[in-house]
Lab assay of single mutants.
Amino acid sequence: MSRVPSPPPPAEMSSGPVAESWCYTQIKVVKFSYMWTINNFSFCREEMGEVIKSSTFSSGANDKLKWCLRVNPKGLDEESKDYLSLYLLLVSCPKSEVRAKFKFSILNAKGEETKAMESQRAYRFVQGKDWGFKKFIRRDFLLDEANGLLPDDKLTLFCEVSVVQDSVNISGQNTMNMVKVPECRLADELGGLWENSRFTDCCLCVAGQEFQAHKAILAARSPVFSAMFEHEMEESKKNRVEINDVEPEVFKEMMCFIYTGKAPNLDKMADDLLAAADKYALERLKVMCEDALCSNLSVENAAEILILADLHSADQLKTQAVDFINYHASDVLETSGWKSMVVSHPHLVAEAYRSLASAQCPFLGPPRKRLKQS
């Protein structure tokens, strides 16, 4: 649940008159999402009104509101027999009622949201009550392989729920002597030191190019640089560091992050930047690179990204790559990247197969709970 924001200063709310007192009302909304995959969808019983329910879910471990999704594969009634019906059901509720908006969509073979439908307002739910769409999607369109909505005969539904909580009022009075504290510009100011090479005390040599930097900042941000300058190493004695395995453009992006906490060109060089972040123990930059690479996972590059993640101990990226390969196994196994990995990294192939087997055979063990970014 997000923290209630402070109200904007009255002088910034309007260029008009300023009242002596004010009130700011925040209506709290808890948002969460749920993904439900139905394997072997074409084998569902086709009687009209037949119901399939998901397991229950909530916004978190401490949330007492429990929900589930309900599907009628062949419609709810005679009117909707040519459609799939989809509903959000409130299973248990400690209150007399709650209000919530919802959005349903289908994830296609690429994991993209399609055929989205959402409620136009927050509906009133009581325990045992459901709301949804009797005519969510035509069955003939859903079952047509050309539309790519049932890869490997799996129907994957994605649901986003927004639950309306209580409202909170914050009130106060205006004073004539309003003090406005300026925003912190530390990142910009440190970035200026790097860009202008002011007050530098060490030189970093990268592929024949020299960059002036500040030992204190490098040591504070990177345990690797800290070790170089702290001990009686040649880098500490000469205040000069030779860097041979990072390209200059990648190095500059890494230094921008060290000084400012930002990497504006990360998406263009996420793979190389991940390697640099791993070498210099820049954990936050490493996770930022993992996130960017996750966003660009595809059938063509899944094997290469899995190898990269394994090489640099990028655990979150590795998990996402394995899950992606499992979901698109029939396509990924035909790529040149996968065939190369079979020869060069057989242990990763074995890991992917083990994960695929456990996903398809849940009876082999208890269900695993899916539970950071600093």
Rank of each mutant, 00 (worst) to 15 (best):
K180M: 07
S85H: 11
C289G: 06
S6P: 07
D271H: 01
N40K: 02
Y24V: 09
K81D: 13
V206Q: 12
Q120L: 04
L186W: 05
V241A: 01
K369H: 03
K154A: 15
V18K: 10
A109C: 09
I27Q: 13
R240L: 10
C68A: 09
L76W: 05
D291C: 09
H345F: 09
L311E: 10
P8I: 01
P362D: 14
H231S: 14
S105N: 11
E112Q: 10
V343H: 11
K180S: 03
E183I: 03
G191I: 10
R124M: 03
I217W: 02
D201L: 00
V30I: 08
S80R: 04
K103H: 14
K279R: 06
V342D: 09
P7D: 08
K134E: 04
L90C: 08
M176L: 05
I217Y: 14
S119L: 03
S21V: 12
T156E: 14
G208S: 03
R124P: 15
G192L: 09
E47V: 08
V206L: 14
L364M: 12
T25I: 02
F43A: 12
F257L: 06
H345K: 06
L204I: 13
K53G: 04
D153L: 01
P367W: 03
N39L: 02
K74R: 11
D291Y: 04
Q373G: 11
C159N: 01
V224D: 15
A146V: 06
S96V: 14
R138C: 08
A309W: 00
K134N: 13
E12C: 05
H345P: 00
L186M: 04
L356G: 08
Q173W: 05
Y87A: 08
F43I: 06
N296C: 13
F104Y: 15
E290N: 06
I307M: 08
A352G: 07
N62V: 11
R70C: 12
I325K: 01
E195S: 03
P5S: 08
M341L: 07
K252T: 02
Q373S: 15
E230H: 15
S54F: 00
S85E: 14
A276S: 04
S85L: 04
A207S: 14
S295M: 10
L107D: 13
K28P: 13
P367Y: 04
L311F: 03
S92V: 09
S355F: 03
R198G: 12
W36Y: 08
S15C: 04
K318I: 08
H347S: 05
Y259M: 07
M288L: 01
S58V: 06
R99I: 12
E334C: 05
Q320A: 01
E189K: 03
T335K: 02
R3S: 08
L157Q: 01
G172A: 06
P7I: 01
Y87D: 00
D166I: 09
P366K: 10
N326K: 01
S344E: 05
F32K: 09
W131I: 01
A357H: 07
N39E: 05
L306W: 15
R138A: 07
K28M: 12
G16P: 07
L371Q: 15
S340C: 12
T156R: 10
P5W: 14
M178L: 03
P10S: 11
D140Y: 07
K215F: 12
Y353I: 02
C159E: 00
W338L: 05
N177D: 01
V224F: 13
N40R: 12
K339W: 13
V164D: 09
C202T: 15
V51G: 05
A302R: 00
S295Q: 11
S105F: 04
D291K: 09
V98S: 15
V126F: 08
R185M: 07
N39A: 06
V179F: 07
C205H: 13
N244H: 03
K129T: 11
E304D: 10
D310K: 10
T156N: 09
D144S: 05
M117Q: 15
D130A: 03
R354V: 10
L364N: 15
P182V: 03
Y259W: 01
D291A: 13
D201M: 05
E253R: 06
R185D: 07
M35W: 14
E334W: 03
C23G: 09
K135W: 12
I52S: 05
Y87K: 01
S105I: 05
K215P: 07
Q165L: 03
L297C: 11
F133G: 13
M255T: 07
L297M: 10
A187N: 12
K279D: 08
W36H: 13
P8A: 11
F102I: 01
T114N: 13
F324Y: 11
C23A: 05
D315G: 09
T156F: 11
P182E: 01
Q212S: 12
S33A: 11
F363Y: 07
K95T: 06
V206E: 03
C68L: 05
T175F: 06
F133I: 03
E189Y: 05
N265D: 08
I137A: 14
R3G: 02
M228E: 13
V4C: 12
G75M: 11
E79T: 11
S344P: 04
C159G: 08
V30L: 12
I217E: 00
D152P: 08
V98Q: 15
Y353F: 09
A207K: 15
M1D: 00
W36L: 06
R3K: 02
L293R: 09
F141Y: 11
I170H: 03
P248A: 01
F57Y: 02
K134M: 01
A275Y: 12
D140L: 09
N72E: 14
F158D: 14
D166A: 02
I325M: 03
E230S: 11
N265K: 03
N147R: 09
V164H: 02
H231C: 14
P5N: 14
K95L: 10
V4Q: 02
H328D: 04
C202K: 14
G128W: 03
K369E: 04
H231L: 14
K134T: 10
A146E: 12
V29A: 05
L69E: 07
E113M: 04
V71D: 05
S167Q: 06
C294V: 11
F229S: 14
P367M: 14
A207T: 11
P73A: 06
M228Y: 14
K66E: 03
A302H: 00
C202W: 15
P8L: 02
T25Y: 14
P17C: 14
K262R: 04
M254W: 10
E118R: 10
E50G: 01
W194S: 11
P10Y: 10
A263E: 05
Q373A: 11
Y87W: 01
R99C: 12
